[in-house]
Design a protein around this nucleic acid. Structure first.
Lengths: 342, 342
DNA sequence: CTGAAAGCGCTTACAG
DNA sequence: CTGAAAGCGCTTACAG
């Protein structure tokens, strides 16, 4: 008993009017096109009665619009991305758009494949955390006048819309905060992904360390190292080989997770005295013992800005819309982990 | 300089063959339809040269298929759902499907709206954590022979595909574990959402408590209580009013988060002695102090099963495909929080 | 105030 | 071995 779906034509036939008229009425252009009030009423009522739902695929084919926005993040299961994804979703649905989430795992190939996949579906816009190697793909998307806004990172040599935070200053301030709290041997644990966000965090850290004439000590964990166990081993060895370290700044919340696991298991006593600061906040850092100081990004505002930019870029003529490059400031949430314990 | 996209027709014209032939060749039916090898080669080469990408929207309109699967969870920013979403995404892409994630926030209205939204786009299948009030919507989806599989919870009085865990036994075992470790006044902190998963967890808890003749003590936090502060206040009061409590089982990882925040802030000493056990594991529970014992669901296998069921249900004739109702077993991860400290 | 017709870009039954 | 034609369900320029 598969229910047949009603089409525009079914309505037109039932009511003895043309499909044109029905289409005009149902898309709200009845008045404008001068359809009589009686007919408008009749068509609207009938459509409601049979619960008519226009076929969006047909509409897309005809209009070239899909009301779908793609949101490509690095990894949807990462708390940071999951949180902002949800915020973006809420705003988009409010505006009548659906959001397709996908994860590029920081792989150029996967990112390119995904974009090509979606461009075949006439997606209306893209919110993307780009991988380093898709500069040209982004460029051709823009050449085709598809709305794109980058997020979390960008390409310094490509004029695009983007929404990021002041990574360098944030890392600088975070490091200075540790220094002010009497830490002198501060490590940076980062990933080897070459992106603006990461490289700026590294810069900020080094800037602060150099300013005070302290020693830099950077561990760069390979992003390709997928095994959590190996990742933890690398971090463990780093801290074993550098017993002088009295504090650490983690460049991503993922590394912090791994680091905290290592500390808890292998250096419970050392952890008590270690200054710890992480990029990207979440509840768990708050309830950790010690509670972890964190550089917090204003996710809500960022999500709003991202959607604004995408929706704005859809207006015609797209060439005349100025690019928007927004840098939000982070907030340093100061908690127990960044104070010296005696 | 917007690049024009090539269509099937463009190829046909350029090569002086019919669109039919091009379509046959490009959809891999060249051999089968008896197109000559030379022509096949010529068309394939040309298509590659101009980087032809078929318009999927047109294809969908014609075939009624979209290669899109909708995955509707309660909240994509919840670690539990984010993790399984990512697993589902990976499997789906491998099979040539894209996944649309959305959050229904446990609201019937939102869930219904979303489903109606998607059914207009000829989505190929649904993976859904249903809200209590969308039983009929699910039913009509099934009447329309659209592949649907429920997840995390189900409707006892509706024959559907589903993938869940043995919630009652898991809660029972978790409670027994606490009892075996000398806890006698065990609370259950749960949400008031009426779903099978939750109600079964409650049942399992009560069963164990009754078996030992202990006192039940259940806090049911309203799901409508969105403010984290109020939620925490409710939990705080509950523990203040019940000083006899020496252990607690949390029914969702979300409540656990709130609970741990409260304990850390308001009852740091009491927390040390309190037995704590949570549903749904994640890394943060492992690194928490104390590390939190957890009922862990086999996410990977569940994701695989969900995709299997959806893909299978797409085969024709759908009526003849037997429903699959899969119940996975959870694993009790025993950590520090469920032992008595003296 | 309303309708006939073309067209979006595919797929496929039918014909030769 | 290949093609002309219909049709998926809409939208819209054009005509009256």
């Amino acid at each position: 008993m598969k229910k047949k779906r009603y089409s525009l034509k079914d309505i037109a036939n039932s009511l003895n009017v043309s499909a044109t008229t029905v289409s005009f009425v149902l898309s709200g252009k009845g008045k404008e096109k001068g359809i009589s009030d009686g007919l408008i009423q009749k068509i609207t009522d009938f459509a409601k009665k049979i619960d008519y739902k226009p076929n969006q695929v047909a509409r897309s084919l005809r209009t070239g619009k899909s009301k779908i926005i793609v949101c490509m993040v690095e990894d949807i299961s990462n708390v940071f991305f999951a949180k902002i994804a949800r915020l973006i979703e809420d705003i988009a649905y409010e505006k009548g758009y659906k959001v397709l989430f996908c994860s590029n795992e920081n792989k150029d190939e996967k990112a390119k494949e995904l974009i090509s996949l979606f461009s075949d579906r006439q997606v209306d816009g893209y919110i993307i955390t780009p991988t380093i190697g898709i500069r040209d793909t982004i460029k051709s998307l823009m050449d085709e006048e598809v709305p794109v806004v980058l997020f979390d990172r960008y390409f310094p040599d490509l004029e695009t819309n983007y929404v990021v935070v002041n990574n360098q200053d944030s890392a600088y301030n975070a490091t200075i905060h540790l220094i002010n709290n009497q830490f002198k041997n501060i490590a940076l644990v980062t990933t080897d992904v070459e992106q603006t966000s990461i490289s700026q965090r590294i810069k900020g850290y080094k800037e602060a360390i150099n300013e005070y004439g302290y020693n830099q000590c950077v561990l760069s964990v390979s992003y390709e190292e997928k095994s959590p166990e190996n990742k933890k081993k690398i971090i463990r060895n780093f801290f074993l080989e550098n017993p002088q370290l009295d504090a650490v700044l983690f460049a991503t919340n993922h590394l912090t997770q791994a680091g905290l696991e290592v500390f808890k298991k292998d250096f419970p006593d050392r952890m008590k005295k270690l200054g710890i600061l992480t990029f990207d906040d979440n509840v768990f850092f708050k309830i950790h013992t010690p509670s972890i100081s964190a550089v917090s990004q204003p996710l809500k505002q960022m999500a709003e800005e991202l959607m604004n930019i995408v929706l704005n870029s859809m207006k015609k003529p797209s060439r005349s819309i100025p690019l928007r490059q927004v840098v939000f400031l982070t907030e340093l949430k100061i908690r127990d982990s960044s104070f010296v314990v005696d």
